[in-house]
Write a protein that binds this DNA or RNA. Structure first.
Lengths: 208, 208, 208, 208
DNA sequence: GATGAATGAGGATTCATTCAT
DNA sequence: CATGAATGAATCCTCATTCAT
């Protein structure tokens, strides 16, 4: 399922083998795009804004992306791929199911409030700016990511760690975690670990 | 005399004594606006879209609202006012603190998934399309609403009903509840009461 | 020639037998129109501006005038008619040719800087806002007015009072006198008589 | 680096080092603008009119000017600068005060009836279409121009060449000369030199 | 006569995209 | 690869005019 999703997007010539080097022109463009799209919204960000943020002329943008929408899609794509990748590799070192849940919570909080935060916010807030075709593409990647979550929560349920339906619990969690972007400030007293602790205690899952 | 005449012809009063009659042209416009803004986004909804959804000409929009942004603001304003009002009146009949928390959860779920749902989604998703001046206006109304929540959760904390910080709990709840709009379907098996039950059990607050 | 011009405009039902009573709704409208057209220009003055300046609703304007342009035309028409009338009656009391020239100069300065000043300015500055048909109508009235000037200057020429071609002199005078509107201030030290004195001395026509 | 990039893409510089090359797109645009603004008035000239007169698309206008008003301002600005420049250079070759006055009269007649005539008419007739900020800008340029006139007339007064107040005389002259645009036809029998002769003889200043 | 909501054509301006250099 | 002038469709908004009340 994952491989099919991945191989499919390989087909499009404008979607290079992830991930883009952050120092390449394309990478810098994507970083600025995430920032501007998050800040002003996709529609209110002009191609000129983008170009001047990167230090090039507006026409040159189209040497890197076919359309403005492709930039939006790429921002979302890379965010999901990066975070799916990190989640997977962190999970490899974890055997205990409770610890696995905590790892996912922690990863998701990092993805939302860390370096990919702006891109993740764009993923949520600018979803409707994506054409249906692009939505379908991105959706496939999201399903991979959500699959990992559901697998883990289902294990937690059968292990008796949680009572709620995995499906529903995941949804409440998605909302609660993604909303942190609107109020959590990494510069403040609370670390992301503290945040994760709060969540785990609300779920009544004890530390391993 | 002439100045009074001037103000007399004032075409588009922006903030009428709430709430707008839903059958008035203004009311129908607001309902359609909430729908379209939710569906396509504020920026991608044109004034013509709006007009034709209401069955008037695009120019006529501006008899009711001075600018497109005023419509957005009015949508948000009325949504908050309606829901603050409902929350208040429901709370009057409730003495028990645990029951009060449940009432708020239930009210918020209704506001998000009921008639004002589209407007509430607009409030979240289109916030950045509001000018700073309008944001400040709406923020004031939101603070009244949030004040009620915080008061109640603070009482719950001192009553020993909850362990978490009211402040932080409210934020997790905001995210979890507002996110229901993305997945909860009133037509399905689960009622809003069921949803609220799930939330209360997650909070470990027993029924009164 | 004069009568034909006058009788012709009698034909149009919207052009009432001049002059409009200044206290009638129509009269007040024309006064405010002259003021606004002079102040902001015809195009930038909206029918709503006009209406609110008079203390009525915009729709009511059209009970008095068929179109906005009719208002412009009426402003011009009445200004010319009033000033032609005054010039004629003042001239009746004057026999001496030099004195007649001075009378015309004085009258024109009054028309430009007195009560009809705004309307006269509109006549000059908003000429192009008139349809060709209306321009023709107004032109006929202007020709009556200019006829009086030319008659008098021609007499002055044959009396040896002036050297210049009456035709050319009139044109320099038109410019010089109408331009006073841009700089002459009735409230200042210089009276309109003083102004007229300056002009007469420039023409080297001695007082009678 | 990014900020320099920002200013680099600045599309429409408003005040270039005068004067604009008449064959450049900007120059052709200004010439057509002067023509159309003179002919139909600024307000009644649409950006589309302008564009099609130059042979470009309406959107392309905004590569050369930020707003329609900037075009109006540029038309006026260049007209004053060109004419101030010419007046100055012509004056350099002139020692005699009487001759200097004649030079100014001649220059002004040329400015009004020659190549810059349409722009000069726009300067007079479309003044109110300029924002107050732009009016102030243009006013500064006009004051330089008027300063030259006043200096010369003041010298003429102390040389005993004229009797009238320089200040008032200048104003009558401004009106008389600018009005020539409404009646003088270069194609006719009278040359601009003839016109200037008429003016000088009216001023009773003998040829040098 | 007066009202004022509604009309609908038209205006200035924006902006993603193209392409010759 | 980069530029930046040009495009042209689309956007919000204005406003003279109409007409049912």
């Amino acid at each position: 399922m994952e491989t099919s999703a991945l191989s499919q997007e390989m087909a499009a010539p404008s979607d290079p083998p992830s991930f883009t080097d952050p120092e390449s022109p394309r990478g810098r463009l994507l970083r600025q795009a995430a920032h501007l799209f998050r800040d002003k919204g996709y529609e209110r960000t002009t191609v000129r804004d983008l170009a001047s943020a990167v230090g090039i002329q507006s026409g040159s943008i189209f040497h890197h992306f076919r359309t403005k929408e492709e930039i939006l899609k790429a921002v979302m794509r890379e965010a999901i791929l990066v975070n799916t990748g990190r989640m997977r590799s962190r999970l490899e070192a974890v055997a205990d199911t409770g610890e696995a849940v905590r790892t996912l919570v922690q990863c998701e909080l990092e993805s939302i409030n860390g370096e990919t935060g702006e891109a993740m916010a764009v993923l949520v807030y600018e979803w409707r700016s994506l054409s249906e075709a692009s939505q379908a593409e991105i959706l496939e990647l999201r399903e991979v990511y959500e699959g990992i979550w559901l697998d883990t929560l289902t294990r937690a349920k059968s292990d008796g760690l949680i009572e709620a339906e995995p499906f529903i619990l995941r949804r409440f969690l998605t909302g609660a975690l993604s909303w942190t972007i609107t109020w959590y400030r990494p510069e403040g007293d609370m670390t992301i670990e503290n945040l994760a602790d709060h969540v785990m205690s609300m779920l009544k899952i004890p530390p391993a």
